[in-house]
């Protein structure tokens, strides 16, 4: 086994950090290590946390972490912020609220840019989850910000998905992209000391009735005030209950299979794209096809079929 893989399995912070960088950069050195660590994964409870900006996700994660740590669980946190489509750069600011956790050896926090196309999750998130899992984390929280494809993607990674709602102004639920509300395994009404809590709960309840009527588990709606640590213990209990439920009903296997499927598709897509757009391989053909499409000699479908034909022959 590779040295870095051994170190990751032993929980070495620096090795974990470095392997994540390699995976994020699609470095070939990461591939071998990922193979080495895969058999050691599957022990962590993966929690996805999503909600609009300003819903207090980071503070909530901080509070959840405090309780998980009291239960002597090791915690990994992945905080994802959007990458600028213009520059490819990103401002990763979620760490600010978690700095005090960072001094705890049992907590590992990593900030990531979405990097991927169309605001979706970068495929490297799957790798980071695997790495943290293999390194012995008992709980991994994946936080996504904003309202976009990334939120919907979270469900494929997480065993338990939390959607955070804030009462007041009445726009919180509406601003969540269609589809986001339905992914929740647990709804969290955070900042529940504000006006409009009952209205928010009522709105969610009406949604829950629609989307969960055929299931035997009713999606719970929890109320928290993360800045005061209120309702957090109850939330943790509910999170653990959900995991037990997944195990009891064997849904966990289906859920994990869904994740591996998504990951597999991502890897294939990525490799295919790399192959097609690689300078030494098909890049020239692609450029030629683009010229032809521009001058109306060929339509995009025909061009795509021809490029794929070269690979599949």
């Amino acid at each position: 086994m590779n040295d870095i893989a051994k170190k990751v399995l032993s929980g070495d912070q620096r090795a974990i950090a470095r392997l994540i960088t390699l995976a994020e950069n699609n470095d070939s050195a990461a591939t071998k290590v990922m193979a080495d660590i895969h058999p050691h994964t599957g022990n962590a409870h993966i929690i996805g946390i999503t909600g609009v900006m300003g819903s207090g996700k980071s503070t909530l994660i901080c509070e959840l972490t405090r309780i998980f740590r009291k239960q002597r669980k090791k915690v990994g946190i992945i905080a994802i912020d959007p990458t600028s489509p213009f520059s490819g750069g990103a401002l990763l600011g979620d760490r600010v609220r978690m700095m005090e956790l960072a001094m705890d050896d049992g907590v590992f926090i990593r900030s990531m840019g979405t990097r991927g196309m169309l605001g979706g999750l970068t495929s490297a998130v799957y790798d980071v989850v695997e790495i943290l899992d293999a390194s012995g984390k008992d709980v991994i929280m994946v936080e996504t910000v904003g309202v976009g494809q990334a939120e919907v993607d979270v469900i494929k990674i997480a065993d338990t998905t939390l959607v955070i709602i804030v009462p007041g102004l009445g726009d919180s639920i509406q601003t969540l992209k269609a589809g986001v509300m339905e992914i929740a395994d647990i709804y969290v009404v955070n900042k529940a000391d504000r006006q409009g809590v009952q209205q928010a709960v009522a709105e969610i309840e009406s949604l829950v009735d629609i989307s969960c009527s055929e299931k035997d588990r009713k999606t719970p709606i929890m109320q928290t005030i993360s800045k005061d640590g209120k309702g957090i213990e109850e939330l943790v209990k509910e999170i653990i209950n959900h995991f037990k439920y997944l195990e009891k009903t064997k849904e966990i296997e289906a859920q994990r299979r869904l994740r591996y499927e998504a990951e597999l598709i991502e890897i294939i897509k990525k490799s295919l794209m790399n192959f097609i757009f690689d300078e030494s391989k098909l890049k020239n053909t692609v450029e030629k096809k683009l010229d032809q499409i521009s001058s109306k000699e060929v339509d995009p479908y025909t061009a795509a079929n021809e490029i794929l034909g070269k690979i599949l022959k």
Partner: peptide, 10 residues
Amino acid sequence: FGEYVEPTIY
């Protein structure tokens, strides 16, 4: 009273 934690804004 506790201490204030700021929201992150660039």
